[in-house]
């Protein structure tokens, strides 16, 4: 086959390698400066502590079991809110994509949704839902669900007409069309929404815990900050960041499994 595909592929490959190298370099320099900065005194120890100290502190706290109740509370809120956002947001996105008038009506509201200062409603939610996990779940869900809805709806709308035409030509039933064409074709878009949705749920939970809670990782970060426990604060932050990265990685894995995209 004299179509010159292979040349393009190799050129692409060497470029990805270069990009990867730069990405790795950025990560390494970040890690090194967090480690070396505080050690050399470029940054004050009350502001930042070396990464290795954070890790040590975190492992110590994890080992002692002191973190366990906070982890349980925060994870329950984050994963609970995210799960709720997925089971409500994805179907809502499908409906929005299907029902044109509904989309037209809701579009302006969805557009300004994230301009609303969400956490300002926290006192109101507490008076309705009481203290505890309920208002945190509500805020995190509310913060997360709309990004899932909009990404699902716009993702489904972006599916190339050629895919659906091919499906119709092969005489697929409505169900087959949804299951074997629309759903897999929308995976990359929907997963963009899911990844963002998780981060938003996490932000919603941590920020709510900052404001008003008696436990949880967000509360712990703010408590440690107020009590000048810098290592304790960074240990909790490190845990939150690790959680965000771990879930993102898992979601990306699931996505590529589902989409079977070129595994180079």
């Amino acid at each position: 086959m004299s179509e010159g595909t292979l040349d393009g592929a190799t050129a692409g490959l060497s470029r990805t390698t270069k990009v990867r190298a730069v990405q790795a370099a950025v990560l390494v320099s970040l890690v090194v400066s967090v480690e070396v900065g505080p050690r050399t005194g470029v940054v004050g120890r009350t502001t930042l502590i070396p990464l290795s100290v954070m890790v040590e502190e975190l492992l110590g706290l994890l080992g002692s079991g002191q973190l366990t109740p906070h982890i349980v509370q925060t994870f329950a809120a984050v994963f609970g809110a995210f799960a709720l956002a997925v089971v409500t947001g994805v179907p809502a996105g499908i409906v929005l994509w299907r029902v044109d008038t509904l989309k037209q009506v809701l579009d302006p509201y969805l557009l300004i949704y994230y301009a609303v200062p969400f956490f300002a409603f926290y006192p109101l939610l507490i008076s309705i839902l009481g203290l505890g996990i309920a208002p945190i779940l509500a805020i995190s869900w509310g913060f997360s669900v709309v990004i899932v809805v909009t990404n699902t709806a716009s993702g489904l709308a972006q599916i190339p007409e050629a895919y659906t035409a091919a499906g119709r030509d092969m005489n697929l039933s409505r169900w087959q069309m949804l299951r074997y064409v629309y759903l897999p074709a929308s995976v990359p878009y929907v997963f963009t929404g899911l990844k963002l949705g998780f981060v938003y749920a996490l932000i919603g939970t941590i920020a709510s815990e900052f404001i008003l809670a008696e436990s949880g990782l967000g509360w712990l970060i703010s408590y440690n900050y107020n009590n000048f426990d810098v290592p304790g604060m960074y240990a909790a932050m490190l845990l939150v960041i690790s959680l965000a990265l771990a879930v993102n990685t898992v979601l990306a894995r699931v996505e590529s499994r589902l989409y079977q995209r070129a595994v180079a």
Partner: peptide
């Protein structure tokens, strides 16, 4: 309606990227 005696080939990329 769609008929098994007729097959269509489209211009745009209509192959499914999520399948081999």
């Amino acid at each position: 309606g769609p008929d098994e005696r007729i097959g269509m080939v489209f211009q745009d990329h209509s192959t499914f990227p999520w399948l081999s």
